[in-house]
Computed example of a mutant assay.
Amino acid sequence: MHTTASLGWLLVALCAATGAYCLLRMRSPVAEQRSTAGGEALMGFGMAVMAVPAAVFTPPTWVWSAGAVVFGAAALHDLWSARRSRHHLHHLVGTGAMIYMSATMAASPPSPHHHAHGGSGIPLVTGALLLYFAGYVLLSGARLVPTAPATASGPATGTAGTGGGGDLGWGDRPELARVCRLSMGLAMVAMLLTM
């Protein structure tokens, strides 16, 4: 990826924070949270490593190849899990994007003139992934828009303290999981734009 050092560090911070939150979600008593949180933590930390500016740390080429293998295994898990949950199809596209970026970085090591790792990928693949993740970011952002407040005709359902989600722990709140996914989608768009 060809980025400035400041953008690289912002991506590192965003992705590492998202990965850390996803690790905390793995302790949830809600099965669906645990099911997706591990893959999302792997994505967050993997993207954080990819975003470290090359001027600070340039790993050997085999690290990127190993990353492609790790994300290949995650893609197989997502493929298997997709038969139960539609969300795992998104994870499958995400792990595919990580495999693609890892392979691109392994194939073209950074030059001294670039501030970040890797070279450029195949424009058609990069463009398709960019369109997918840009659409995902827009859809995820729209899902975070609050619904209409309560009217005089009655209270809104699902508000805090009514048992409709207000008593969930902070790690089990669906809106926080959506923010986590939105953050990773934004980071993926930024990383794909720099390829």
Rank of each mutant, 00 (worst) to 15 (best):
H2G: 11
A5G: 08
L11A: 02
L11Y: 01
L14A: 14
A17Y: 03
T18A: 12
A20N: 04
A20P: 00
C22W: 05
L23F: 09
R27G: 07
A31L: 14
R34Y: 12
S35K: 12
A37N: 11
E40A: 08
M43T: 10
M47I: 03
A48V: 00
V49M: 00
A51R: 00
V52N: 00
A54D: 01
A55G: 15
V56W: 03
P59L: 02
T61C: 10
T61Y: 09
S65D: 10
G67D: 03
F71V: 07
L79N: 08
W80I: 13
S85D: 14
H91D: 06
G96Y: 11
M98I: 05
A103V: 13
A106I: 13
S108Y: 08
S108D: 13
P109K: 07
H115F: 11
G121V: 08
L124H: 01
L131Q: 04
A134F: 04
G135E: 10
G135D: 10
G141V: 05
L144V: 06
V145S: 01
A148T: 07
A148N: 05
A150S: 02
A160I: 13
G163E: 14
G163H: 14
G164Q: 14
G166R: 13
G171W: 15
C180N: 14
R181D: 09
S183P: 05
L186E: 09
L186Y: 06
M188R: 01
V189M: 01
A190G: 05
M191A: 02
L192M: 01
